[in-house]
């Protein structure tokens, strides 16, 4: 195997890694908001239900969730939900979205609860409805406040994608192990490290930029 062949293989794997990363974010960011509403819902049964779900998802390894999502439906009901060539990827995506939306929900909740009571009262005095208060007053401040913990979680997600290999999703580490490492070629491991470093480096710059842009109240 020459350099360009290995490069092509790794790039195809990194493409899978990236699409898993971006799709997880696209679905988990809004879903996290929904889960958060459950967590702060005044209707207690729903709140307890959501808390139980978050407890289960945060309390069990993502690897276990990947196995459960991919293998259990087929074993119990004899119809695999995730067929075809992209089935494994879809299963991994479902597991990642569920897992990450629970983490995001807790970060959102922390942000929402950090907004002083007085702002809600002020909004009420000004005649804003509860929905308006949330979306127009609270949410934008929350975005600002949770940026740092979110960047942490997002960077973790970049590297967590490699867990998808346990259900044989062809992400970069899987491709490397099956096609390259199995031929006793070691150096691509370091090369993969560079891929991740660059990717996370770009994300870090992006978050720094966003933080600077959003720091408009600071003097």
């Amino acid at each position: 195997m020459n350099f360009s062949q290995i490069n092509l293989l790794l790039l195809s794997g990194f493409g899978k890694t990236c699409s898993l990363f971006f799709l997880t974010l696209i679905f988990a960011l809004p879903l996290g908001l929904v889960v958060m509403f459950g967590l702060i819902c005044p209707f207690k049964p729903l709140r307890w239900l959501t808390r139980t779900v978050v407890w289960i998802i945060r309390g069990t390894p993502l690897m276990l969730q990947l196995f459960v999502v991919f293998y259990v439906p087929g074993m119990l009901f004899h119809t695999n939900l995730f067929v075809g060539t992209s089935g494994r990827f879809q299963a991994a995506l479902v597991a990642f979205v569920i897992n990450y939306s629970c983490y995001f929900a807790e970060i959102y909740r922390g942000g929402v609860e950090s907004i002083p009571r007085g702002q809600y009262e002020a909004a009420q005095v000004l005649g804003l409805s509860r929905v308006e208060t949330f979306f127009r007053v609270v949410l934008m401040q929350v975005v600002k406040r949770i940026l740092a913990p979110m960047s942490n979680e997002v960077i973790t997600l970049v590297k967590d994608t490699s867990l998808a290999r346990v259900i044989a999703v062809a992400e970069i580490f899987y491709i490397n192990e099956v096609r390259i490492l199995s031929k006793a070629i070691i150096w691509p491991l370091f090369y993969i490290g560079v891929f991740f470093l660059l990717f996370v480096g770009a994300l870090t710059l992006l978050f720094n930029y966003a933080e600077k842009k959003l720091s408009y109240y600071k003097l």
């Binding site: 196995f67 991919f70 074993m75 089935g87 044989a168 099956v178």
Partner: peptide, 19 residues
């Protein structure tokens, strides 16, 4: 015929789940 590279130790799970 299609071919799917699997983890050999998960082979029975793969088979029984219809993957």
């Amino acid at each position: 015929a299609k071919f799917q590279v699997i983890n050999w130790s998960s082979k029975y799970n793969e088979l029984n789940s219809g993957a």
